[in-house]
Amino acid sequence: MEKNKIRRPMTFLRRISQILCFILIVFGAFLGIKKQNLSFLPFIEAPLEYKEQLKSEEKGAVILGPAYPQAFDTYLPVKSCRFLRQVGTFRACFMHFVSESISWLTPPRLLFSHILLFLILAVLLGRFWCGWVCPLGFIQDILNIIRKNFKLRRFFFSEKFKKTLRNLGYLLFISIIILSLLSAIPKLPWSVRKQVYLSVCQMCPVRFIFPYIGNWPIKHNFSPFGYGIFTMISIAFFLLLLVSFFIKRSWCRVCPSGLLLSFFNKGSFLAKRKEPLKCTRCGICVGVCPLDNKEVYLQKKKKNIDFASCIHCFRCIDFCPEKNCLKVYFLGKTLFRSKFKR
């Protein structure tokens, strides 16, 4: 047997992608990439920094809210996570955009290009971001790898609890929308609206990670009310994320951003297919799945094995011992297929 052969090519590629994306997302500015220069449409003038607007509001001026001059502001490069303003390059999270644009009741014509970009990416790739790009996913994977090397026990959520977490994700998603709408009530003074403004970021577990690794001096910069309930929630979510030391990808089961992308998983062009006859139902795919999904294992009637909670990490395809049983398609072409490994 050759020793240098990469036994799990997909996982290998994914780790490289995750590391690169993590560096870009968290420390991208240090690599000489200036955010402003990434502008794809430089002729559109950037609006006032809305921080300044907030200052002027206190003096009685009308707040316009952040404008969205570039499509890439929302999802891909340019705009970084708000906890990494100075050092990050882009963010993999879409919820901030949803929440913010609702809060400021941004007119749809301004959002059109952003939504279009999001739709294109989501339809093309589905939840690809969760497995290959998301820095939170990477942190969870790292935590799990540490546990693996210490040979500590791996735990599992029960099926019931997994369902509860998924429902919690829906609840979170809906409450974020409602809270954003609350913060958008025009007649309310800013001091009131401020309390629920950007609730998604206030509840995000990242609040206790990114400021400490990237955003010096550490600034949480949130509403006092938020420091109460929202901080409690975010601490809870942060703890849930730390649980991924024992249970793989524990936060991903709640994450509202992943939930939003998961709606596109079934129809996306990045697709998994299975030859039902070739599958011997050996159950290896369940054991290696970070979210311990059973869908790939259970499906024996249809070829299509795309489902909502898959994060496209393709570990099942890496591990599947049956030749040509599982395949990854992108835009109709086979990217990768399961092999028998010597």
Binding site: K148, K151, R153, R154, T280, V288, F319
Partner: peptide
């Protein structure tokens, strides 16, 4: 002889 035991990680329970 056909079926494989393929543990994801070398911990006793897994």
């Amino acid at each position: 002889l056909y079926n494989l035991v393929e543990p994801d990680e070398p911990t006793t329970d897994v």
